[in-house]
């Protein structure tokens, strides 16, 4: 419907004409939503970030039409709205996929495997950072720390948590997304599209049945200290939440009720591998 100047390249001639308005029915619907958002704040301008989420929920990215709408609703200039929209990374400035797959590559996740996941996903999907697959399903990005370091490495899809990922689990997940199979996060609600997610961000609660309670009260890592304090066994670390473990891993995850001292038992690492005596234990001090 609209095209931003960045898609057309830099034009050096006439100043750009004002963006076209939304069709009347779309405008009427968005205006009702916008008034509800504006009413939440003592000063209307505070509604700008939610309204940008709202127009993003309409078109999947923030268009010039969307920015014009925000400006009109809040009595701002489009320049003022553009200045804000371009400052924040969650506002997309070009059309993107239904599912935004963000791999955390900040230090801790990167070191724990985020870099490897991001590399393998780029290769697997044939797209680079910020690019979308041909079918319009998946936009791949690397993201910054998302406050889930105890679940590293973390992948976010439409801002739902996919914890303790591996390259294999991440590749399976994007394959499922592209083939339309239902995909559920480890923490969060069953995935909705990027546009539907943007509407929640604009401040409209998710009304889907079961969305709020999905995946339970807390992730396993969040409960580790509590279980220790209560004298219960800490849950064993859940490394492969989606489907089977990678090659070579033991066929069963240790039981969650395993005793705390289980870390003293022979471990499935090269350190306990008799055919490979000089494992990490010997190497580390050298």
């Amino acid at each position: 419907m609209t095209t931003s100047s960045s898609e057309r390249g830099v034009s050096l001639g006439m100043p750009e004409l004002p963006a076209p308005a939304y069709p009347d029915d779309v405008r009427a619907r968005l205006e009702a939503d916008a008034r509800e958002v504006i009413a939440r704040y003592p000063d209307s301008r505070s509604a700008l970030l939610p309204l940008l989420h709202l127009v993003q929920s309409e078109e999947g990215h923030v268009t010039r039409t969307g920015m014009r709408f925000c400006a009109e609703m809040l009595d701002l200039t489009t320049a003022e709205v553009t200045a804000v929209a371009t400052f924040y990374t969650m506002y997309r400035r070009r059309p993107s996929g239904d599912y935004q797959v963000g791999v955390c590559t900040n230090t801790l996740c990167a070191v724990m495997g985020g870099d490897a996941i991001f590399e393998e996903l780029q290769e697997h999907l044939g797209v680079g950072n910020g690019q979308t697959t041909d079918d319009g399903k998946v936009t791949l990005e690397h993201i910054e720390c998302n406050a889930a370091c105890d679940f590293a490495p973390v992948v976010m899809v439409n801002w739902e948590f996919f914890d303790n990922q591996t390259p294999e689990s991440a590749k399976r997940m994007v394959d499922d997304l592209r083939s339309g199979r239902p995909v559920a996060p480890t923490r969060g609600a069953p995935l909705c599209t990027f546009k539907e997610t943007a509407r929640i961000l604009a401040g409209f609660p998710d009304t889907r049945e079961g969305a709020v309670e999905a995946t339970g009260s807390a992730g396993p890592a969040s409960l580790i200290g509590l279980k220790l304090a209560k004298g219960e066994a800490a849950p064993a670390r859940v490394v492969h939440p989606r489907g089977e473990a990678p090659r070579g891993a033991p066929p069963h995850e240790p039981s969650p009720t395993e005793h705390l001292s289980s870390h003293d038992a022979p471990q499935d690492t090269s350190a306990s591998d008799r055919s490979h005596p000089s494992g990490p234990v010997a190497e580390e001090g050298e």
Binding site: N164, G248, S270, D273, H276
Partner: peptide
């Protein structure tokens, strides 16, 4: 960097 990953020690064994 492969040795730092969460799955490094599993992989080491596979490749050994």
């Amino acid at each position: 960097p492969a040795r730092s990953t969460a799955w490094a020690d599993h992989r080491t064994e596979v490749n050994a």
